[in-house]
Design a protein around this nucleic acid. Sequence first.
DNA 1: CGTCATATTGATGGGCATCAATATATGTGG
DNA 2: CCACATATATTGATGCCCATCAATATGACG
Lengths: 228, 228
Amino acid sequence: MSDAVRATIRALPHFQGLDEAVLERLVAASRLVRVERGEALVHEGRPCAAFYAVRRGAVRVFRVAPDGRTQVLHHLGPGQTFAEAAVLRMGRYPASAEATRDGTEVVEIGAATFLQIFDEDRRLARVMVASLCGWLQRLVGRVEELSVASAGARLARYLLDLPAREADEGLELRLPISKREVAEQLAITPETLSRQLRRWHDGGVIRSERSRIVLLRPDTLLAVAAES
Amino acid sequence: MSDAVRATIRALPHFQGLDEAVLERLVAASRLVRVERGEALVHEGRPCAAFYAVRRGAVRVFRVAPDGRTQVLHHLGPGQTFAEAAVLRMGRYPASAEATRDGTEVVEIGAATFLQIFDEDRRLARVMVASLCGWLQRLVGRVEELSVASAGARLARYLLDLPAREADEGLELRLPISKREVAEQLAITPETLSRQLRRWHDGGVIRSERSRIVLLRPDTLLAVAAES
DNA sequence: CGTCATATTGATGGGCATCAATATATGTGG
DNA sequence: CCACATATATTGATGCCCATCAATATGACG
């Protein structure tokens, strides 16, 4: 039980190079939370008391626009963290998060202890800052993408960024999330995604069956990703 | 000369509450840079050696897509800073920046000294982290905006966020940058911006002459900003 | 096997970019 | 001060991308 928390925390990039005693304080301030698909972890606007590391399953971070439509900011998998920024700022959560898989487990790291250690240990400050900068760069990339890239280009980039392995006919990869979720993350509709895949399929660029996709001509996708 | 640097640095939110001696070290590590419109300050991909605070004029931060199109990430005015994230990460600049006014002055703050002080002074760490979180939240807002909001809604939000003053007929405001630049920042074309303003003008929502705009019915704009 | 979420496919329309032409500033040198 | 050059702004015509609505298909799972 507590071992699971300990293992997750020790594996986080944020906490590399910290003393044993400090790590144990963090472990003591944390707890394992298990949620089912659709269950909320944090609510936009609520005062924040912790940040989270995903241990199993998947989590999506999203905002709800005034008119009720939701925009997914990130899909997170095991080993990834969220809401550090809110904790450091000691404010309210700027977005909501919920599990998208049954049996999702996250480690909840208490804000108070964390902030205390942040003030004591210089290394933590540096590593946390690096982590925040990583988020910044990812977001900058998304802003650029959303404003200049077409739906096809965004999808091409997404596919090319997935882990793939060599196969007879080309690069073989698996969608780690459902197509609906992929569409959400790329800010397109599932219909558009489906049509785009079919166009590439008909053009002999990919071979697609269910969540398994083989890139027959990755160079063509690279061209699409670069274009428009 | 050095007084200008000193005044700018002392006024930055990043450096509030620091000791005199520390501030002077920062001043010593900084220099005033004067550039004309269109001159570059930092280049995407170059190793970073400093971050910047705008003292006079205006600066735009942008990225260039593979196909040559540029996307403006931010327009910055006096008192605002950029590239802190790159410095803290000690990497390369993730975007380019250039002046958009003649006679623009920025204070260049050397990375080495800054990082040294960052490690020594806990307050600086906290304030810098807060600053980074601010950038994060702004970017999150832009991602949301770009993916769910229409061009009209984005423009409405932009206008409503500008400083305005009461006038006889409504709220009077001035565009701080050219309409072309506004369009760039909102990721729309100047034509679309022009047409949208005209539609509101014809509808009696605004009165627009050159860069001066009077919001006759701000509530209508609020509704547009909330919608779609 | 029935139920429900996910996926696919078609038809339609609107928003916004693109191309093109003109107007209006803004600035420069004679 | 005017003529010219250049950037910015406006307006129109056209078309495409993509969302929306709707229907069906194909899973997943009790």
